[in-house]
Amino acid sequence: MNSGPVARLDNMTKKNGAAGSRKNNRGQTLVVPGEDLGDSEGFEAGHGVMSISGRLKAVKQGRLKEKGRSISVEPTHTRYIPRPGDLVIGYIEGCTNNIWFIELGAPFNAILPMSLGPGKIDFGGTRSVMDIGEAVLCRIQEVEETHSSVVTMKGMGLRKIRSGVIEEIDPHLLGRLIGKGGETLRRLKTETDCRIVVADNGRMWIDGELDGILDVRNRLSAISGDSNGGTN
């Protein structure tokens, strides 16, 4: 990476840990970009961490996580980055005669070619099948740097979403939402009597009676508010 230093003084000071590590109310150490995390010897740089000249350095703001040899940073806000195989909920932002453009809440949109769409459609008939503003449950087919990522609706359970609501939570809270072995999510479904599908891009589809939906929404606020993640 080209950091382009302009000049360097002879007597510059190397500050280690600036304001000192501070812990949050869960006893986790908080770090900021540029913070030195110690010698890299014997350790692996995980998410949000880089190894430079024998030292590990945080490049994201968040909570320090140590798992075995891997040192990583769990950020407060995460942006969803598409990976092949991910289940996602997207909104149709536009279409041509044979492609839909899907907004995923990611750094870039995806395309859904007609061949991977729902059922059989004639060329030019895209909008009559799925219009702008509609929500779809689909899967990431491929992600490549040279072109837009591709999603598919060919697969079990993948479909246009016709009822219910879509809520959003920060992707890094998905683990807490689902719980160990899916326990928390299971309980949420039975207690609110709602159908809930949680997608990997931090969106969830909730369907059921209005009271159940409002109940789910309240519990979601509690999860987000509790960890200061916030909803979008």
Binding site: Y91, I92, E93, E103, D131, I132, G133, E134, A135, I161, S163, G164, V165, I166
Partner: peptide, 8 residues
């Protein structure tokens, strides 16, 4: 974009 589900 106006999500259709939102209006409903």
């Amino acid at each position: 974009i106006v999500p259709k589900l939102l209006r409903a």
